[in-house]
Amino acid sequence: MLWNIKINFIKPNYNDYSWKALLRKVGLKPEKNLDITLLVKEQNKLVATGSLDGNIIKCLAVDPNYQKQGLMSIVISRLKAFLIRRERKNYFVYAHRNQVPLLENLGFNELVGVGKYPVLLEDGISKIEDYINIINSKITSFNAKKKYEQGKIASLVMNCNPVTKGHSYLIEKASRNNQLVIIFILSEDKSLFSAKERRNLLQKVVAGKDNVIVVPSGNYILSYSTFPKYFLSEDQEKESIRLYAQLDAHLFGKYFARSLGIKRRYVGTEPNSVVTAIYNQQLKNILPQYGVDLIEIQRIEMKGIPISASRVRKLLKEDKLDQIKSLVSRTTWDYLKFWSDQNEDK
């Protein structure tokens, strides 16, 4: 047991040499976008650290010379207490493979891992099984009402920021060729339009289709927790994007596809975004391991340019509202006009 260690929460200091050195010692790279960093020092020497990015524990390290003295327990306990005080229902760790046994001993469950890093683990009062149960019961009651038999189930994961005719086209394709279509709409509030706005607009678009159900993607599909790179700027290492994309694909296959009986996943071809292109490629590689076919649909175009939400956002920014009209549904168009008026003063 270590006596007289000093434990402090600090604002992350990415230039702190001793912090970076400690991370490298355990085979981790310093990350950016951290909210808070915990430092454990013995006689002014940094011996352990861990940081938070939202509800994700990252940059977790214990000096190898100070192992088996309970430092990992101290770091995890403090970070966990910090998260619970902020009323987080669940939390994740991105860990090195070597750290997994220790973390499991501290209450975490491994969700998925890609190579040595990252391995994603979870703990909290509501876990992935609980979330899937909620989705499952939603689908069950939806099916009962609509009197559908369990058959070919397809799914889409979409941000719909905002929903366009491109999305409608994809949904239409899936709806026609499958008995049930589950749309996971991203829950993360890190987009131009809020989760609620995006969801409402999508609901209106799918209102007429009685084999399409919209459910929130929660913490586990393309969320900031499982795929932070999706929400960060484009200018990142491709290798790291690839790793997180793999993690996300495995999570979808292992938990969602298996429990919900999903056999197909639809995506639109991606001509512009590097992140999305890498993501689609990883889905294509990994999902078949879980019995899921990835179906890529050529994006529809308008005047030779593919319809995409990013194109709509760009036009909104340039105040070219009239050019958006042909890219989105009537209800979305109405809302965008309203939204644009609301945001004019800003």
């Binding site: 327990s73 101290i74 995890i76 306990s77 403090r78 966990k80 005080r85």
Partner: peptide, 12 residues
């Protein structure tokens, strides 16, 4: 609401 106390250190 949810709240916690204690730690996962030895003897705790």
């Amino acid at each position: 609401k949810t709240a916690s106390s204690g730690s996962m250190e030895s003897s705790d």
